[in-house]
Design a protein around this nucleic acid. Structure first.
Lengths: 230, 230
DNA sequence: ACTGTAAGGATCGTTCAACAATCCTTCAAG
DNA sequence: CTTGAAGGATTGTTGAACGATCCTTACAGT
């Protein structure tokens, strides 16, 4: 190479433009996670293709992406629907979270890089709670755990966690009253962060496990009550 | 319900027929994992659509699926290619395997259900090795670890593992001499299975960690030698 | 009241053809 | 050896079309 190009390889990602199908998927993903499309809603091809001004074929590519992310379910000849999670799904999601999040922190003996992101998520949560912004509290809480998983230092774990938490959001928007669900865990997030800053990964892992058990219990309880069947 | 239907819910999956795009994805996935399409190969839309007698649109849906599974990469306006793993990918794959497989067995205190599948994988591997069927040995080895992950009892972990191991196969077919890579681990698989049968999950987890460290080292060494760049 | 059948409309599944946008190759010029 | 331009090839996206499947409604039949 004649000139210094090594500084540019980090910019490659910026060049990776995005196709229409992916942008459509982004829009739908955002709409779903914001609760605009609630679980169980059917997404008709003609209607949505028309509304977004894309062709049905392109929309179907986007549907395939989101179906693979488990945000949509696809029933042959019936269309795609926003996923409705069963209790088993919720249980499994927490199984994965316990496995991943605890393993990500258990072997830590020093505050990992990215610790500031974790503290930022905690303080953002506090700020949101102080303003009674319960939706913001939920977002901060989710980011907290995303950062926890990132301590594994693995892109694949990050992506897994992103998907798992996106699924979990499907539940949050089914039940009203996010305050009731998110507020109790604000303090515990702070305690976990403190343990990690002291380099006590094992202690943080134990506390996380208890945390997740409680959250799962609470969620399953509310869910089976809200959805007596199944 | 007037009749006993609870036994039928397990059959629902059988009813879920499959679309053309998914069948096409199945074909391509099999071709990739069998080494027919080697990493780096470009999959031209016209050629493959014609060969499989499906339309380009349907084929593109299949491409999207496989891209999301990380078996293909998609470059805008250039087409899709069979994924070529970098050393960082290999390292990350083993990071995930260590995290998942060890966590799946560490807390076991009794031989889990599915233990027979594990033993079957071991004996299948032995049988394949006895016949110098190195490809069969590799398959048995992969199944062994798939079963290990299944001890987590989580469908999502199962799917994650399926994807991770499918990615790993991309490496196996790049390097020749599967015997050299798979044979040394046959004995260790047996030892791990024995520990699990004694209910010593922690011991099995430790041995798995060492196993995976060795395999990663060996693979990275061979890979950087085969691929000096990067 | 319950089951079965038939017709109709709506939506999905898939294909095909077309065209613009982008990339790759070739080749000539500097 | 690099730059630029022309040309062909492939992808990205659209629109229309048609058969297949599902849903709804209506109409019997028991």
């Amino acid at each position: 190479m004649s000139v210094e190009t090594s500084g540019l390889i980090a910019d490659r990602a910026l060049l990776g433009r995005t196709s229409t199908a992916e942008r459509v998927a982004d829009v739908l993903r955002a709409r779903i996670s914001e609760g605009f499309f609630t679980p169980g809603t059917r997404l008709a091809e003609d209607a949505i293709a028309g509304a977004l001004a894309v062709s049905r074929n392109t929309l179907r590519e986007a549907f395939r992406l989101l179906t693979h992310e488990r945000l949509l379910t696809h029933e042959l000849n019936r269309g795609v629907f926003v996923r409705v999670l069963t209790i088993d799904d919720v249980i499994d999601i927490y199984r994965v979270r316990k496995l991943v999040e605890c393993a990500a922190v258990r072997d830590l003996t020093a505050p990992p890089s990215g610790m500031d992101d974790l503290l930022a998520a905690v303080s953002d949560g506090s700020a949101a709670a102080a303003q009674s912004d319960w939706r913001g509290l939920g977002t901060a809480n989710i980011r907290f755990h995303q950062v926890i998983a990132s301590f594994a230092g693995s892109p694949r774990v990050d992506e897994l966690m992103r998907g798992i938490l996106a699924e979990l959001r499907l539940v949050f928007y089914v039940m009203q009253d996010p305050r009731w669900f998110h507020e109790p865990y604000l303090v515990r997030n702070g305690e976990i962060a403190a343990l990690l800053q002291e380099g006590d990964g094992a202690g943080a892992a134990d506390m996380l496990a208890a945390y997740l058990d409680d959250a799962e219990r609470q969620l399953v309880g509310a869910y089976s009550e809200h959805n007596p069947g199944e």
